[in-house]
Design a protein around this nucleic acid. Sequence first.
DNA 1: CTTGACATACGAATTACTTAGTACTATAAG
DNA 2: CTTATAGTACTAAGTAATTCGTATGTCAAG
Lengths: 124, 124
Amino acid sequence: MRPKHTTLTPQELEIMKLVWQRDTATVRDIYEALLAHRKIAYTTVMTMMKILETKGYLKKRRQDRAFVYRPAHPKNQVIGGMLREFIDRVFNGSAEPLLVHLVKTRHIREKELQTIKRMLEELK
Amino acid sequence: MRPKHTTLTPQELEIMKLVWQRDTATVRDIYEALLAHRKIAYTTVMTMMKILETKGYLKKRRQDRAFVYRPAHPKNQVIGGMLREFIDRVFNGSAEPLLVHLVKTRHIREKELQTIKRMLEELK
DNA sequence: CTTGACATACGAATTACTTAGTACTATAAG
DNA sequence: CTTATAGTACTAAGTAATTCGTATGTCAAG
């Protein structure tokens, strides 16, 4: 049986980013961070974090009265999975057409090219 | 007022890919193409294509008894928009961390690097 | 002219995603 | 002890995405 939710939904991702930033976070921490950008209810954040725990993206531990959440997986791994899913879905699994787009939209320029070159060297 | 649907949903994308391939297509064409991969009802495809027309991704024209659909926008433009949305949402708008992932997962190797280099040269 | 094949129109059910309200509990302050 | 506060649990409701059934219309073959 294949897992139902392969990747994070947009709102889930938004929350996960904040938790990764902090390494550990309570509902209140995330609630306040989100509130700085948009109107949202405390219980909405709680629900989302509970869902993230159910899906295996967050682990929780009770500390005093509240739960403290922490990421179950490193950011790189999860984001990498999202990227792979995107490439599969949009570019049929090959990165090259993606690169063509990045070059044509000037997302990649000389500067980024140097970065890639350097990273490839390090891998050798 | 900002448009409601910025990007194509997974199923919408699947259909758009097939229409782009063919340039023009009827519901039956797409239905048969999809059916080769999975169970799906004819009316499901019809509904999806009607939605795509409502959203402005497809244009239709009646030919004999059936509608003939064609893309309203070139593939590059739409896919480019999806890529931009993804980079914004997942990588906060910068392509460099994306490149880091591509290198580390070996999606980019020497071969792809040459491709980028060549494309950048051509743009100069 | 009746019937079968094939098309659209319309409506609706299901599931996923997002948001949030209400009830209840425990702790800390007075 | 009472009460305000801060937390969780549970429930529900709205919207988007996906799927498909039924009704209806048209054309062509017999």
